[in-house]
Amino acid sequence: MFHIYCPYCAEYREEEEFHPRGQAHIARPADPEATSDDAWGDYLFFRDNPRGVHHELWVHAVGCRKFFNITRDTRSYAILETYRMGERPTVTANGPEAVPSATATLTGALA
């Protein structure tokens, strides 16, 4: 049962108030019609499953209803940080420089 710091409510809240929405920083291709079937399929269906640091999109569903990101260690379940939409993570598997460029833009929703 996670204890999650909501960056908008500015306090720790119980997991029951949240919904996980999968991997974070999946941006919708800017021009879908110009996107190949393969690339579109990747965007829709393919997700990372790392052992270790992972960035996830969550929503404070029973609360402020805001979406935000969680950086979580999938081994220990430790939540390393939470950050608002549009912000970059400061904790990544290989240091801040390894953050995919998509994080510089706004993050995307799940298909």
Binding site: C9, R13, E14, E16, E17, V62, G63, C64
Partner: peptide, 9 residues
């Protein structure tokens, strides 16, 4: 606050 209340909110 808004929170869980029994199985409602």
């Amino acid at each position: 606050v808004t929170s869980v209340f029994a199985k409602a909110t």
